[in-house]
Write a protein that binds this DNA or RNA. Sequence first.
DNA 1: GCATGTGAATGGATTCACAGCT
DNA 2: AGCTGTGAATCCATTCACATGC
Lengths: 223, 223
Amino acid sequence: MTQRPVIDNDAVSELTTGRLSVYLRCLTYLESIEQTTVSSQELAKRFHLNSAQIRKDLAHFGELGTRGVGYNVSRLKAHLSRTLGIDRQRNVLIVGAGNLGLALADYRGFNTNGFHIVALLDVDPEKIGKTSRSGAPIAVWDELQTIVRSQAVEIGIIAVSAEAAQNVHDALASAGVCAILNFAPVQLRLRDDVKVKSVDLRINLESLSYYLKNSEDAACGTD
Amino acid sequence: MTQRPVIDNDAVSELTTGRLSVYLRCLTYLESIEQTTVSSQELAKRFHLNSAQIRKDLAHFGELGTRGVGYNVSRLKAHLSRTLGIDRQRNVLIVGAGNLGLALADYRGFNTNGFHIVALLDVDPEKIGKTSRSGAPIAVWDELQTIVRSQAVEIGIIAVSAEAAQNVHDALASAGVCAILNFAPVQLRLRDDVKVKSVDLRINLESLSYYLKNSEDAACGTD
DNA sequence: GCATGTGAATGGATTCACAGCT
DNA sequence: AGCTGTGAATCCATTCACATGC
């Protein structure tokens, strides 16, 4: 009847997926020190998590552990990679080749283990044709649609000013990008067929400021 | 009796302060277009928020609105600035002058309206003595304690590798910095007299990947 | 015995719906 | 009439505690 938005059937909450990412990182570490088995309690103690929550999170995906023993590190790691959809490469396009865009392009973790940055876009003629330190080419903004289609871009990153962000969002959406990571400090008008996650760096600073203000009287300090 | 950690008395939750930051930004915009009064409903409609939540959030701080009318834009804006503690300047030190550190130093919003970046620190001799584009000096890592004390640094930003992050955290804490914004993808061992907020860029990408995987069968498209 | 997986209990946060003020 | 401020109701997430299985 009505046009259904793209909805995940039995999907798990975003808070949970965030923790899955954390678990994945912990497991990668454990694998690197050649530990083969780990219990939820050990994970919790080592990485300051809650063991019940770990078990509940993992239980969403069937019985991954062995009672009396724990979880097999590499098997669980592989399972989480698959669950998060990073067992294959996803192509990423960064719009905005300013400081932030370039920093993200070279950020370890944005160009590895499932993600590949195909290019950055900008309007500044000075920048076009150059590359980021990691080698991602900087192309002209007009190429957006072409690049998205020819390079099978699945994720777009908005690293432009607040003013330009809505336009970039709309262009990415029209070009067929379904997932966007937005760094511009605005409330974007969203479309229900595109998933947008916003990271607002300023809000984090303000939150710390609030904390400081609230503990201004209390002692806080050096020993 | 026991040594009390620094606890905020009647403080409001972090989710709430995040929204206060958003409201503040909306009000700044409304002020710029010279609107003097706004109701919770209008705010909600304009910026895709929930009017009941706006009212509840604001009600924590007394009766800021006028029944039958709404809120006075600039009065509310001033109040939120005070509440968030950005009605005065807070000095910020960035540790790590790599791409991310430099991007943050030049990020509009990190060096304005209540925040001032006093310096970046690094270990690379190549970088020492230079400045970021915005003019923040890059100093040598050993100067951390000196700079924190002489420049009254209140907020530290960790923009170094995962491996180095714990050390940086500890050094900042010992130097007397009470609030830290961490960009390194690690679970830090925390101290209870220091507030740490972590921003994990990779987790956001993985969350989008999860979304993509879960809507892979469903249509997701262009127009 | 030991650790998982899970219903039940708790604790927060969001939303509803309306009383109370202008 | 209109909009705030707020108890009550709802929803969601976390934690507890134990039955289940290795």
